[in-house]
Design a binder for these strands. Structure first.
Lengths: 221, 221
DNA sequence: ACCTGAACACCGTTCAAGT
DNA sequence: ACCTGAACACCGTTCAAGT
C-alpha cells in the first residue's frame, strides 16, 4: 500500500477517534496499535502526525478544555466577577463530566495545551480587570482549577464501593451508609460541588471586601 | 532456588520498595519486573502477595493516607470544627506533597483502601458531632478532598512550562509572566492553597451560621 | 506456601523500504 | 510526505514445575 495519494490520517481525525475511544473504554484502552486499528491504519502511522502517544492524549484533553465557556470573562460581559467565576466553574465542571476518563490528563495542568492556556489567561485577565491584585488573580485561577478538577477526578461517590461488607462498623463507625453512596452518587457529587463552590465564592467575596476596605482606608489617610 | 525456607518477600517490603520507586522515578517506573528486580526476585513472585499491580499501587497510596493527622477529629480534642478542618487539610496536603507521584492514584477516591476510608470516616463523624446535618457533613468531606487532591495533583506552577516562547502574547495577552511561575512555583502553590482553604472555611462558616439561625428560629416558633 | 523460568498476548517507538 | 512490516526492548499475568 505504502503512501496513498490522499492522506488517510490527519491530526483531527486521530484526536476524534482517540476521544471516542477514551470516552467509551477509558484511558487504558488507548494503545497506539488499538487506536491505529480503529483508524484503519497500522500503529506506526500515527507517528507521522504526533511525536508520542502522550501528545495525542494531550490533544484529546485540550479538546475538552476548548469546550469550556469563557464568554463571561470577555470585556463587554455584564456579569460581575463572582457570577462570572460561578458560571465558568459550572461550565468547566460540565465539560469534564462529559469526558471523565480524560480528566487525569487534564488535571495535571495546562502545560503547552493551547485551550488550557486560553482558560488560564481568560480567568486571570478578568480577575485583574475586576480589581483583584495580580497575585490574588493567579491564586484564584489556581484554586478554582484545584476544586473543579479535583471534583471531576475524584467523584466522591464513585470513589466508594457499592458493597456493604466493605465498611465494617468496628473500623469505620460513621460509614454505615457509605455503600449507599453509589446509588446517590450524582446527588452527592452535585451537592458537594455546589456547596464547595458557594463556600469558595462566599469566602472570596469576603476577602475582596476586606481588600476594598483597606484600599479605601489607605486613600483616605 | 524455588521456595526459600524463609520468605524473601512480604507485603510490607513490597509496598516500601514500591513507594521508594514511585517517589524516586514516578509511577511509570513501576513495572512488576522492575519492582521485582529491586527486591531481588523475579517478576511473577509478586503475585504470591498481591493479586495485581494495581493492588500494589493502592497499598502505596494508602500508606500515604495513613500519614494524615486525624487527631483533631477525636472526641476529646478541643479544636472547633473550623480549626479541625483547617489543620486536617494542612496535614493532608503535606502528606501528598511528600509523595506527589502517587497522588493520581489517591485522587480517585478511597475505594477499598482502609486508611483512605478511615480519613473519610473521621471527618464525617466529627462534622456531624459539630452540628452539621449528615448530608452537609458528607459534602464537606467530599469538597475538602476535591480541593486538597486537586491542589496536589495539579500543582499550578508545575503545570506551566518554564519557557518564555510557549506563551505568545498574541494568543494569551495576560500570561506574559507565566514562564516565571516555575521559579515561584512553591510560593504560588502555597498562596493558592492558603487562599482557597481560607475561602472555603469562611464560606462554610457562613453556611453554618445560617443553619444555626434557622434552627433557632424554628425552635422559637 | 513461595519462588522460578517459560510463555502468551500485549505495549511504545524506531527505521528502512516503498510510492 | 505518508504509509508499511519488521524489529527492539519492553509490559502484566498465568502456569507448570520445583522445594
Amino acid at each position: 500500500m505504502a503512501r496513498p495519494r490522499k492522506p488517510l490520517l490527519s491530526r483531527d481525525r486521530i484526536v476524534e477517534t482517540a476521544s471516542a475511544l477514551v470516552d467509551a473504554e477509558g484511558l487504558s484502552a488507548v494503545s497506539t496499535r488499538r487506536l491505529a486499528a480503529e483508524l484503519g491504519v497500522s500503529g506506526p502511522s500515527l507517528y507521522n502526525h504526533f511525536r508520542t502517544k502522550d501528545e495525542i492524549l494531550d490533544a484529546v484533553a485540550d479538546a475538552v478544555s476548548a469546550k469550556v465557556d469563557l464568554s463571561m470573562f470577555e470585556e463587554g460581559d455584564a456579569r460581575d466577577w463572582r457570577t462570572a467565576l460561578h458560571d465558568w466553574a459550572a461550565s468547566y465542571r460540565a465539560a469534564l463530566a462529559d469526558h471523565p476518563n480524560i480528566v487525569p490528563v487534564l488535571a495535571q495542568g495546562p502545560g503547552r495545551r493551547p485551550a488550557g492556556l486560553r482558560v488560564a489567561d481568560a480567568v486571570f485577565g478578568a480577575m485583574v480587570r475586576a480589581g483583584w491584585p495580580p497575585a490574588q488573580a493567579t491564586y484564584i485561577g489556581a484554586l478554582m482549577r484545584y476544586f473543579v478538577t479535583g471534583s471531576a477526578l475524584g467523584s466522591f461517590a464513585r470513589g466508594f464501593v457499592d458493597d456493604e461488607t466493605a465498611y465494617d462498623p468496628a473500623d469505620y463507625p460513621h460509614l454505615g451508609q457509605a455503600h449507599l453512596l453509589a446509588e446517590h452518587r450524582q446527588k452527592v457529587d452535585e451537592g458537594a460541588f455546589d456547596t464547595g463552590l458557594r463556600a469558595l465564592l462566599d469566602g472570596l467575596a469576603m476577602q475582596y471586601e476586606t481588600e476594598a476596605r483597606e484600599k479605601r482606608a489607605r486613600q483616605d489617610s
